[in-house]
């Protein structure tokens, strides 16, 4: 146990230092533009921009790091919220890393393999972006229209496959939650429920269903004993 705490403390230290470095790096271009070209918005306009960002994405800033924690874990959270593409890229990769190795989420082995997997995806996405920044528009021009069109539906395709993989370990939970989720997502706009409330509500429904299944299983094994 102490070993594990030490290990966590080490990871938290690496994560904290690198995220602070990321926050600094995040502002280097605007500082450069100010120092080299004298271009900087007046402070009240910076506040205005920040307010616009806060109103538009502020809820995501808070809700996403919290809700994805169960999947990303400690190291994964530090990597995911610096390198981005959490839902569509890092999480599917974590799912696959655990699937092919058979290490379960929530165990030390599962955490290790998901970290190894996530770092692997960072190398892939960094390479990909660098390559396409350099070769630019040429690649898009040679791609067939059909392929370009198919990328419009990459998200439902990724989420569909990831969902099946997650649900295959808990069939009843998976089936009940997606049905509940679809019904809630259908009703929400009609009741004027905002997206972030729906986000939390569907996760809440998943946990509630998990609780019911856990209770009924505990009861079942209780009578058998």
């Amino acid at each position: 146990m102490n070993d594990k705490l030490d290990f966590n403390a080490r990871l938290i230290r690496i994560g904290t230092v690198t995220l602070i470095a990321g926050i600094i790096a995040n502002f280097v271009p605007v500082l450069y533009l100010w120092l080299a070209h004298g271009a900087i918005p007046p402070i009240q306009d910076i506040l205005k921009i920040w307010t616009v960002a806060l109103v538009t994405f502020g809820v995501s800033w808070v809700v996403q790091p919290l809700t994805f924690f169960s999947m990303l874990g400690l190291s994964g959270s530090y990597i995911g919220w610096l390198a981005g593409s959490v839902a569509d890229l890092r999480c599917p990769a974590v799912t696959m890393a655990q699937k092919v190795t058979g290490y379960e989420p929530g165990t030390p082995e599962g955490d290790v393999i998901s970290t190894i997997g996530i770092t692997g995806t960072v190398f892939v996405s960094l390479t990909m972006m660098a390559v396409f920044t350099v070769i630019g528009a040429n690649i898009i021009n040679i791609l067939p229209v059909f392929i370009k069109k198919s990328f419009a539906v990459i998200l439902p395709a990724v989420f569909g496959a990831v969902y099946v993989e997650l649900a295959s370990k808990h069939l009843k939970l998976g089936a009940a939650t997606i049905v509940t989720g679809l019904v809630m997502a259908f009703l929400a706009p009609q009741l004027g429920v905002p997206g972030w409330v729906l986000n939390i509500a569907i996760i809440g429904a998943g946990i509630l269903i998990a609780r019911i299944l856990y209770k009924s299983e505990a009861k079942g094994s209780g009578t058998n004993a």
Binding site: P105, G106, Y163, L166, A185, I202, G206
Partner: peptide, 28 residues
């Protein structure tokens, strides 16, 4: 129960992401 709880949270999260891609979206 903790394992169930984490599974419920993760499945719930992806149920939200998936249904967001489906409800009100094109048949594709």
């Amino acid at each position: 129960w903790m394992k169930y709880l984490m599974a419920g949270a993760t499945v719930g999260l992806f149920a939200f992401l998936l249904s967001g891609q489906l409800i009100g979206a094109k048949s594709a």
